[in-house]
């Protein structure tokens, strides 16, 4: 009696872990071809992006970022600062690692946009879809990444593919949420005006709701990029090369100093991506007041 009050009764405990394990194992056996095809596609796309980044000479990339920084912020100093930061990355000997990291981040951001944007629109337009998808999003956002890292390896082997999947699962959420939030909160009168002038639902969506929601959607994109960046080290755990792996190598050797460099480089890349996209958001907002 006393035991029952103090401890959760043992008879009430159950274990679904094994069933799920078995399910994942069987699933990966039975869907080999599809999974392999996905894997090959992902690998090819990431390689493509990496190739693109790599054929741009380092100095040109720096110049492009400098110009973007200057144009978007409207201050020359900012451009110069970004340039200096990137030169720092190069002089740490981490340029190639940065490109590797970037190609995974960019690929997962693209995937997040391709999947997340239409899903966000769907949620905004359809109550039923919303009631199904929203809890899944909550789940994706709160589930510790580590939990799906291993299944991702079981399904997609190691390296770029599961890294991309895990990053996308984590980073896609703000894209979906902000898209739907933006669309739902477009000024009601404006939407009504569109309707009153005889727009079809599609016209209303494309000509009014989406453009009006653009600043919010861009904010979502910004958050998605930031979240993808924050997955860099986690992805190294499943074998993704890049800055994250450098950090792991160093921390596992208790070489704090050496871990600091790639750490700072991640911060640099994140800051630059954040400021550039946020600059875009601000511009959009200013346009629409």
């Amino acid at each position: 009696m006393k035991d029952y009050l103090l401890h959760f009764p043992k008879e009430w405990q159950f274990d679904v872990g094994d069933t799920i394990d078995l399910w994942i194992k069987t699933f990966s056996r039975e869907n080999r071809e599809i999974l392999t095809a996905i894997r090959n596609f992902v690998i090819a796309s990431i390689k493509g992006i990496n190739w693109l980044l790599a054929i741009i000479p380092w100095w040109l990339l720096i110049i492009i970022v400098m110009i973007l920084g200057w144009r978007i912020s409207g201050r020359k100093r900012v451009g110069l600062l970004y340039g200096a930061m990137l030169i720092f990355v190069g002089s740490c000997g981490l340029w190639v690692h940065m490109l590797e990291t970037l190609s995974i981040v960019i690929a997962s951001v693209i995937l997040s946009v391709i999947l997340g944007f239409p899903l966000g629109v769907l949620i905004a337009m359809n109550k039923r879809a919303e009631s199904i998808i929203r809890p899944i999003l909550d789940l994706m956002q709160t589930m510790p990444t580590f939990v799906y890292l291993v299944p991702a390896v079981m399904l997609f082997s190691t390296g770029k593919t599961p890294a991309l999947m895990a990053t996308t699962i984590y980073a896609i959420v703000p894209m979906i949420r902000m898209t739907s939030h933006g669309i739902i909160h477009v000024n009601g009168e404006v939407v009504e005006a569109a309707k009153a002038f005889g727009s079809t639902n599609l016209q209303t969506l494309v000509k009014v709701q989406i453009p009006q929601a653009m600043p919010t959607i861009m904010t979502g994109l910004n958050q998605t990029i930031m979240m993808a960046m924050s997955m860099v080290v986690t992805c190294a755990l499943i074998g993704a090369q890049g800055l994250g792996m450098e950090i792991l190598l160093a921390t596992n050797r208790t070489e704090m100093g050496k871990a600091l460099m790639p750490g700072i480089c991640i911060v640099i890349v994140a800051i630059i991506l954040d400021r550039l996209t946020q600059g875009l958001v601000k511009r959009k907002e200013a346009e629409q007041q």
Partner: peptide
């Protein structure tokens, strides 16, 4: 791979 879990999972 960055972790034992991933190594064993693979």
């Amino acid at each position: 791979l960055g972790s034992e879990a991933a190594l064993f999972a693979s």
